[in-house]
Design a binder for these strands. Structure first.
Length: 162
DNA sequence: AATATAAGCAACCGCCTCTTG
DNA sequence: ACAAGAGGCGGTTGCTTATAT
């Protein structure tokens, strides 16, 4: 045991990437592909560890990444996939073209989780949290007025108040 | 206008799995 | 069959930006 971390070597840079570093990484991968992340930074002239390069490429620099807000359809897809797959963000990302696991994970933690909690749904089990259910807050919630969310509620098995 | 607080997101850490010798 | 190394992944952190007071 006791594997050495990949960034153990001194002199390797950490923290936010500069535009120059981004460009070096893009140029290198466009010319050579990304066969070996371990040796890539050295070959590309980057003072970064391979993991950092891989993360930067897959989460930010990849040309097929769709940036910007998640559509309602995407959000619904994420929730439905989460019911089936749980916190398998990469598996969920694989079904959402142009989105990364990190992006989905962030979106889940900052938006969807809170939305589900507000709706009285446990974001882990997707079961209604009847003990905490606050009907009035659900009634006043903007989501209540949205038909897609109503479908989602039905999908999740949440009883809609009448 | 200044400060405090919350939200959003990029990036790191460390564990797990897969591959290779 | 086993060990070591590399890649991949999920959880978490911490910086930046937006919003409230």
């Amino acid at each position: 045991m006791g594997r050495t971390p990949c960034c153990e070597k001194n002199g390797l840079k950490k923290g936010p990437w500069t535009p120059e570093e981004d460009q070096k990484l893009i140029d290198y991968i466009q010319k050579n592909g990304y066969g070996n992340w371990r040796t890539l930074p050295k070959n590309a002239g980057l003072q970064r560890c391979g993991k950092s390069c891989r993360l930067r490429w897959t989460n930010y620099l990849r040309p097929d990444i769709k940036r910007g807000r998640f559509s309602f359809e995407e959000e619904e897809t994420i929730i439905q996939l989460h019911i089936i797959l749980g916190n398998k963000w990469s598996a969920i990302a694989a079904r959402l073209p142009g989105r990364t696991d990190n992006e989905i994970k962030n979106y889940w933690n900052t938006h969807i989780r809170k939305t589900l909690l507000r709706m009285g749904i446990d974001p882990v089990t997707h079961n209604p949290r009847l003990d905490l259910l606050d009907i009035s807050s659900i009634l006043s919630s903007s989501f209540y007025n949205n038909s897609s969310q109503m479908n989602l509620s039905r999908f999740l098995g949440v009883q809609t108040p009448c």
